[in-house]
């Protein structure tokens, strides 16, 4: 039964062209995303594919201008629907906060914990600021009790001492946990974690991922994990979205990705093959980055890298031209699995 806590319809985000071109370029192209309540959704894709921009836009913290240009988003924190005021160009939304949503209903763990902590404030004060968003009018002693509770929840040893530390006194793994504690302290219904395990050693990575999963189960919280670490995703995901150059090229439940079944998008296969190759110590598949994507925007976003077009089997030899010129339709191998690829939709 579908019970999304947040969903979008045909969301477009555009930003100024970094090469100085006149018209804004689309970095999120018609995203339809549904985050199920109490489930872990993973958003995977390579750097620059628009993962972070999409989520920031949804939570109204988009710094990218011009910003969201089309689409709708709805949040259902407690079953009733609220429109998410998607931010347009900044001058038009300044001063308008998320009116109908409880402050702190969504928590965000940013990509670089060391950048998202205030270097001049002690850890305890930063977590305390979050606590007061969820509960106004607490006495200082009550705030402190809750701060220690959250530091303990994220398995920081000796929370009393950690609360007194400044961010520069924390190791990478500790800073990451503090960032998670800050996000949790507003008691969010939805937690967005943007690559929370980057740059951590395996032991800490495992701890953080297990901790996030445990918190979801214990608190009924929904988790959106943005990652490009397929090993992490395989470990924790209930639902997956695969993003490539601004487009969600595939989504489906876990079994669609990690159990044998009908076709996956060739880009998903590329990601999986790379991850598996490294695990097995073999050489990762060659990448043909030299080919540039077509600038027209027509056709499949993956066409310039697709191995099925570059080295087509005899049956697929006619595909290349269509893939480059026609925007591929969505193909549904099963009711909850969607692949945006002509070749997958027309098995030969």
């Amino acid at each position: 039964m579908s019970d999304p806590i947040l969903f979008t319809r045909d969301l477009w985000v555009r930003v100024h062209d970094p090469n100085g071109g006149g018209s804004p370029i689309a970095v999120v192209r018609g995203a339809n995303i549904e985050l199920q309540r109490g489930a872990t959704t993973c958003l995977v894709g390579e750097s620059g594919s628009g993962k972070t921009v999409l989520m920031r836009a949804l939570l109204g913290i988009s710094g990218a201008r011009p910003g969201v240009t089309a689409g709708t988003a709805w949040a259902r924190p407690d079953g009733s629907e609220f429109p998410v005021p998607l931010v347009g160009p900044r001058k038009r939304w300044r001063g308008r906060a998320l009116p109908s949503l409880r402050p702190g209903w969504a928590g965000y763990v940013f990509q670089h914990p060391s950048h998202s902590l205030d270097p001049l404030l002690r850890v305890g004060d930063q977590v305390g600021a979050s606590v007061t968003i969820a509960h106004s009018g607490l006495t200082p002693a009550a705030v402190k009790r809750r701060v220690l509770h959250w530091l303990e929840t994220v398995h920081l040893p000796n929370p009393e001492a950690v609360a007194q530390l400044f961010p520069h006194e924390l190791s990478g793994g500790m800073a990451q946990r503090v960032a998670i504690a800050i996000a949790l302290a507003t008691e969010p219904d939805l937690l967005v974690a943007d690559e929370p395990t980057t740059g951590l050693d395996w032991s800490v990575r495992r701890d953080i991922v297990d901790l996030l999963g445990e918190l979801c189960r214990a608190r009924g919280m929904s988790l959106l994990l943005i990652s490009h670490d397929f090993q992490v995703v395989e470990h924790i995901a209930d639902q997956l979205y695969v993003m490539f150059r601004g487009e969600l090229v595939e989504d489906g439940p876990r079994r669609a990705f990690f159990e044998p079944g009908p076709g996956s998008h060739p880009y998903t296969r590329e990601l999986q093959a790379r991850s598996r190759a490294l695990e097995e110590g073999s050489s990762p598949p060659r990448l043909h980055l030299a080919e540039q994507p077509t600038s027209s925007g027509a056709g499949c976003v993956y066409a310039h890298r697709c191995p099925w077009i570059r080295e087509p089997s005899p049956e697929r030899s006619a595909l290349g031209e269509r893939c480059r010129s026609v925007r591929p339709p969505d193909f549904r191998p099963s009711s909850d699995h969607r692949v945006r690829c002509i070749a997958v939709g027309e098995p030969t």
């Binding site: 894709g45 390579e46 750097s47 740059g199 790379r274 490294l278 598949p285 990448l287 980055l289």
Partner: peptide
């Protein structure tokens, strides 16, 4: 020093 930290799988393979 950690030349591949924070890179996605395809770019990582590329840098390697």
């Amino acid at each position: 020093d950690e030349p591949t930290a924070g890179l996605d799988a395809s770019v990582k393979a590329d840098v390697i």
